[in-house]
């Protein structure tokens, strides 16, 4: 090989060696997790193949919708409490408390600036209150009739907590992989409700032009709103930027401290 050619190859190798690659993520582990989740889903698919449970679900829905009004007021109130938690949830919000994020030690700490000693009072941690019942991943799948959708973004991992929400929805809470939402320690909140986005989350909002921006999520329409925009129909002030979209008949709401493009990328990984 002529020297000139060897020199060119050596220069190319040197150039390649100077590329500063980002740290290699543990994609093998993340892939394993996705495959494990699929394996977990197999027994569920088996159950769905047999319609008995579906009929049981229809029968239960019938009892709740038609028969509940005939129940005694006390019992009716109890049953209603399972599904409705105050007026905010009547508006279709997720099972995050309508009182919004509350200050953890509100009763004991004076409001900011109220310190009698004149010292600065730091804000205690914001803790969103999830009023729905804590449920397992398996229960969440059953609740969504097999249509539970999960982000496949490796760094998020599995949801750390899952709550039941009204209207047969679920709230998935993640704590890893993204900058935290304020000082909650939560990285992402994904709310899922059967149905369309507008009635589920945006009833009464002015739509595009009122602060909501129309976006495309994998070719389907969605809405984006920065955290500072006030959405009157939501159950609480936003802790982060929010993306609404619909997928396979499920209305989704993703809340995270990320920019629009990254939120859409996460949304497009949901399946």
């Amino acid at each position: 090989m002529p020297d000139r050619e060897r020199e060119l190859e050596s220069d190319l190798r040197e150039l390649g060696s100077l590329i500063d690659y980002p740290p290699t993520p543990d994609a093998a582990h993340a892939a394993r997790r996705v495959l494990d989740e699929e394996e977990e889903e197999l027994p569920r698919r088996f159950r769905v193949a047999f319609p008995t449970l579906r009929w049981a679900a229809v029968a239960t829905a019938f009892v709740l919708i038609v028969a509940v009004p005939a129940l005694s007021p006390t019992l009716r109130a109890t049953v209603s409490d399972w599904f409705v938690d105050g007026d905010t949830q009547m508006a279709g919000g997720p099972a995050v408390d309508g009182g919004s994020a509350v200050r953890e030690s509100e009763a004991n700490v004076p409001a900011s600036g109220d310190s009698k000693s004149g010292e600065a009072v730091t804000s205690p941690a914001l803790t969103p209150q999830f009023s729905g019942e804590r449920i397992s991943l398996r229960e969440a799948r059953a609740r969504m009739a097999g249509d539970l959708l999960l982000p496949r973004t490796p760094k998020l991992g599995k949801p750390d907590k899952i709550y039941a929400s009204p209207k047969d929805g679920v709230v998935l809470v993640y704590t890893a992989g993204l900058p935290p939402l304020g000082d909650t320690g939560i990285s992402l909140i994904l709310t899922e409700m059967p149905g369309d986005v507008e009635p589920a989350y945006l009833a009464g909002e002015g739509g595009v032009g009122s602060g909501l921006k129309r976006v495309s999520v994998d070719g389907d329409p969605g809405y984006w709103s920065p955290a500072e925009h006030h959405l009157s129909q939501l159950d609480r002030p936003l802790l982060g930027n929010v993306l609404f979209w619909e997928q396979r008949g499920v209305a989704l709401r993703l809340e995270a401290n990320v920019q629009k493009e990254q939120a859409i990328r996460i949304a497009e990984s949901v399946r």
């Binding site: 590329i19 290699t24 543990d26 994609a27 093998a28 490796p154 760094k155 990328r265 990984s269």
Partner: peptide, 29 residues
Amino acid sequence: RGYQEVAFRTAYLITGDASEAEDATQEAF
């Protein structure tokens, strides 16, 4: 695991974005 570095670097040179390269590597696995 033994292949993930070369896999990720290949994906990174193609996508030009670390996050997309990570997703592509995971999906490929």
